Amino acid sequence: MEILAFGVQSDEKPLIEKAFAGHHDVHCLDVFLNKDTAPIAAGHEIISTSVNCELDHHVLQSLATGGVGMVAQRSTGFNNVDLPVAERLGMTVARVSYYSPYAVAEFAWTLAMAVNRRIVRASIRTRDFDFRLDGLMGRDLRGRTAGVLGTGKIGEAFARIAHGFGMNLLGWDVAENPACVELGMTYVPRERLLAESDLISLHVPLMPETQHLIDAVALRAMKDDAILVNSSRGGLIDTRALVAELREGRFTGVGLDVYEAEAGLFFLDKSLEAVDDDTLARLVTFPNVLVTSHQAYYTVDAVSQIVDATVHNVLDYEAGRRSENVLVPRS
């Protein structure tokens, strides 16, 4: 059987091919699954998708018509998949419920440190042999307060690094993480966390309850010199509201690895095209904002774990087994 994998990055391809070797042939495509590319999957029982593939009811219907019986998502997030439609069509959907939390947590800290110490601006200057320090002043993080919204595995890893910096820890989640409490984290209401934190990092999943968790009201509650980092899902932040606050000169820095309208942009080369997203175009012009292209998870360790889990999901589907990764079971 040949597995068809959509949205495969060049660095990811050899890892996928190696993992499936001895099990199935795999055909890797760099195009993302959407209504236009869905017909490519005809004749394949199993396909694999990335987080920026579109699996709405139109795409899923096209896949089902073409004979697809399983979607193996290569990510933890699955907000791009219309699960009720998949279930109605009798299509199995599985995801990767776990991979290295350190990959994302370490990258979140990379963003935080980069905007705090003005690393991008400094690098651009030195390439032009401009070695002035004007405008590059950052601040010590020791003794300041880190607010962690979402204290699961990734949030815990982020908090451990903050603890290593000697920061005070505030947390917000539906349930306390004992490991974070041991680090000295105090769980507080979201409003207090936003008001008292010098650095705020988002590590909650995107769902209807967390859509625009950081809205205009939340942004105004933050300190004017706060650092905001999002390496989770773009929809957690109301980007237009963020732009409005940035135009007022607020925030020491904002580090974003995700963007709420990233589908059709991120993972693609748009350098020779006119991008018609005015909000994103404005966002990247602020000198205190750093936007990266959803790469927090992108380490050889994390991607290898994601690929291995995807292979196991496929083998479980064929054997009729069900694991914690299954979102919609085989009918």
Rank of each mutant, 00 (worst) to 15 (best):
R321T: 05
S75Y: 11
Y98V: 08
F6C: 07
L194M: 08
S50M: 15
T252A: 14
A21G: 03
E87S: 13
R144P: 00
A261H: 15
A86H: 07
S123N: 13
L33R: 02
V314K: 02
A114V: 12
A162E: 08
G255Q: 09
L141P: 00
D277W: 10
D130S: 09
F78Q: 04
P101T: 11
L60V: 07
N288P: 00
N52R: 12
I214M: 08
A19R: 06
E245G: 04
A195W: 06
A21V: 10
S323H: 05
E318Q: 14
G7D: 14
A274Q: 12
V68S: 03
L256N: 05
A263H: 12
E191G: 00
V81D: 06
F286W: 08
Y297I: 10
H294F: 10
A41D: 03
L228R: 04
V93Q: 02
A216H: 10
V188C: 10
V311F: 10
T210I: 04
T145W: 09
L280W: 14
Q295G: 00
N168D: 15
A5L: 11
R74Q: 07
Q61C: 08
G147C: 08
M137E: 04
E324I: 13
T239N: 10
L170T: 06
T252V: 07
R233G: 03
S331D: 15
Y187H: 01
K223C: 02
L202K: 05
N168V: 12
I227D: 01
F6G: 03
G66F: 13
V59T: 07
L242A: 06
D257A: 04
A122L: 10
R132M: 09
H212V: 03
V243K: 06
R250M: 03
Q73A: 14
I47P: 00
S232N: 02
I214C: 04
F267S: 01
G253T: 07
R321Q: 11
E45W: 15
E262F: 13
F266E: 06
L242M: 05
H23C: 10
T210E: 03
M167Q: 01
R88S: 15
